[in-house]
């Protein structure tokens, strides 16, 4: 009896250790976010305390050598590029998902999906490279100079479209087939079924995809850096070159010191804040869907 309880005890001891090591690992993974935020703050601290956050909006321009760090042109560039691409990519992605699920014959649907998955796997630097050597000259021939907001929007569209399409497709596939069947049995045409039944019932999934796509567009660096021209300015039209927050970091981080470096970390914090907002929105929506489905 003693022996038996000893075995139980030693077993539970190992189990205990096992559980606690898992807890520790999980804590390190979960704590990573905190660590990232702490270090971003730590590096931006000198500028935040000595000069103040407001100055990145009120300075006269982006002249690091003259201690003038205005981020607003970069912020406008980032937002314009991201919003422009989402306006293109959201309808295209959702229509693509509809194509796969309702319109394409099975073999085409399979290969189309495969193609989109492949597109999702192409690294951003390759998109940027293709944009630089193919797309930018095409735009330049149409309306110089070429590297522009438009080029950035088009490349970003290609890059975030797979995210939107794959999530939209997944949520459309999750719809009970009986909805489609009973809509068809009521004599609803294909588009009527899509418009009245499919899109409204899967709207949360579609929105989730759009928010995640937007988050990706905001954070994208390499492709934007390679096709947008990187001129610090508020663009007056779509053919103007722009510089985004991300591109700014990538371009200047290598030689930035002191306040210059601090400001770059502040722009990192700004990006992170934007992205966190959109990811949280997407997660709330996703939570709502699972909740609605289990109901």
């Amino acid at each position: 009896m003693t022996l038996f309880s000893n075995i139980i005890l030693s077993h539970s001891k190992i189990d205990f250790l096992f559980l606690w090591s898992l807890r520790a690992l999980a804590l390190s993974a979960g704590g990573l976010l905190l660590l990232v935020i702490v270090f971003l703050f730590h590096e931006s601290w000198p500028y935040l305390t000595q000069i103040g956050l407001a100055n990145v909006f009120t300075d006269h321009g982006w002249f690091p050598t003259e201690q003038s760090y205005q981020l607003t042109p970069m912020i406008s560039g980032t937002i314009l590029a991201a919003c422009g691409s989402i306006f293109l990519a959201a309808p295209l992605g959702i229509l693509s998902a509809l194509f796969c699920h309702f319109y394409a014959p099975p073999f085409l649907s399979y290969w189309y999906r495969r193609m989109i998955e492949l597109l999702a796997g192409i690294p951003s630097v390759v998109f940027g490279f293709w944009g630089l050597v193919v797309l930018v000259p095409v735009i330049a021939a149409w309306h110089p100079p070429g590297p522009s907001l438009l080029a950035g929007i088009l490349i970003l569209t290609l890059m975030i479209l797979p995210t939107i399409m794959l999530i939209a497709h997944a949520s459309i596939r999750q719809l009970p087939t009986i909805y489609i069947q009973s809509a068809t049995a009521l004599g609803l045409s294909q588009w009527a079924t899509i418009w009245h039944i499919v899109l409204p019932t899967s709207r949360i999934g579609l929105l989730t995809g759009i928010f995640l796509g937007l988050a990706r567009a905001l954070g994208e660096t390499m492709a934007i850096l390679m096709v947008c021209g990187n001129v610090v300015q508020h663009p007056s039209h779509i053919f103007d070159p722009i510089r985004t927050l991300t591109a700014n970091i990538a371009l200047e981080m290598a030689y930035a010191v002191d306040h210059h470096r601090s400001v770059l970390f502040i722009s990192g914090l700004l990006l992170m804040g934007l992205v966190i907002a959109f990811v949280s929105l997407a997660e709330i929506l996703r939570y709502k869907t699972t909740y609605a489905l289990t109901q």
Binding site: Y179, S182, A185, L186, G187, H196, P200, T201
Partner: peptide
């Protein structure tokens, strides 16, 4: 014309299939 055909032939399924509206 399938749409008109299905309009004249109603169908009810095993499980109630109300749309989530």
């Amino acid at each position: 014309n399938l749409l008109l055909l299905r309009r004249q032939i109603g169908m009810i399924f095993q499980k109630p299939t109300v749309f989530p509206f």
